[in-house]
C-alpha cells in the first residue's frame, strides 16, 4: 500500500500527458475546424436578439450573402484584442459581420458593446452556450465564414489578426462572393 502511494503521482501524470498528447498525435490541429463541421450547413436554430432594435440570428439570416459569424463575450480577454480589427473591417463595408454573444449576462454584454462600440449587423444572444455547442465552439473568440447558402466554409479559433484577415479570410470572402456563394 505504502509503495503504491508513491506511484500515484506517476500514474496521474501519465493520464494528463496522454490527454495532452492525444490531440497533437492524432494530427488534429486545434486551430482548424474538425472536418465534421466544414462544408456543412451552419446550425440554424433561432437566436434572440441581444440589442433592442437589432435583429438576432436565424436560418434566413444565415442564408443571406457571405458573412462572418463571430462568437464573443464580455469576459473574454482576446475578444477585446480583436475588436478594433473587426470594427475597422465592418466599417469599411468589405464584410458583413454577425455576432453571437456567448454565455454572457445581457447587461454585461451591452455594457461591453457600449464601451467598445458595436460593429455587428445582427447579434444573437446565446446565454446557455447551446449555440456554441452546435457550432462546435472551442473557446471564444471564434469566427466562422458562412457562405450565401448557409454553409460553413472556414473557422478561425482565437482572436483574429490583421494577417489572418488579409491573407486568409478576405480572399476567401471575395472568392465566395465572386462564385455566387457556391
Amino acid at each position: 500500500m505504502g509503495r503504491l502511494l508513491y506511484l500515484l503521482p506517476l500514474v496521474i501524470f501519465g493520464a494528463i500527458a496522454a490527454y495532452f498528447a492525444a490531440p497533437i498525435l492524432s494530427g488534429k490541429d486545434p486551430k482548424t475546424l474538425p472536418s465534421a463541421m466544414i462544408d456543412k450547413p451552419a446550425p440554424t436554430q433561432t437566436l434572440p436578439p441581444l440589442v433592442d432594435g437589432k435583429p438576432g440570428i436565424d436560418a434566413a439570416a444565415l442564408a443571406g450573402p457571405v458573412k462572418l459569424v463571430n462568437f464573443f463575450a464580455s469576459w473574454c480577454v482576446p475578444c477585446r484584442a480583436e475588436h478594433p480589427l473587426l470594427t475597422r473591417y465592418a466599417a469599411s463595408g468589405k464584410i458583413r459581420l454577425y455576432g453571437i454573444n456567448y454565455k454572457n449576462k445581457k447587461e454585461e454584454a451591452l455594457a461591453w458593446l457600449a464601451e467598445l462600440g458595436d460593429p455587428y449587423e445582427r447579434i444573437g444572444f446565446d446565454l446557455s452556450g447551446r449555440a456554441g455547442i452546435e457550432w462546435g465552439v472551442y473557446g471564444v473568440p471564434e469566427t466562422y465564414v458562412v457562405d450565401a447558402k448557409g454553409i460553413i466554409r472556414y473557422r478561425h479559433v482565437g482572436p483574429l489578426t490583421q494577417l489572418v484577415m488579409a491573407e486568409t479570410i478576405m480572399p476567401l470572402v471575395e472568392k465566395l462572393e465572386a462564385g455566387g456563394g457556391s
Binding site: 492525444a22 469576459w75 454565455k103 452556450g129 456554441g132 455547442i133 472551442y138 473557446g139
Partner: peptide, 19 residues
C-alpha cells in the same frame, strides 16, 4: 485551465471556463 481540453478529449463536448 485544462478542463475545456479534457472534456473535449473525452466526450468531444466543448465548454469554456470563465472567471
Amino acid at each position: 485551465t485544462l478542463y475545456p481540453l479534457f472534456l473535449d478529449a473525452t466526450t468531444g463536448q466543448k465548454v469554456s471556463v470563465g472567471p
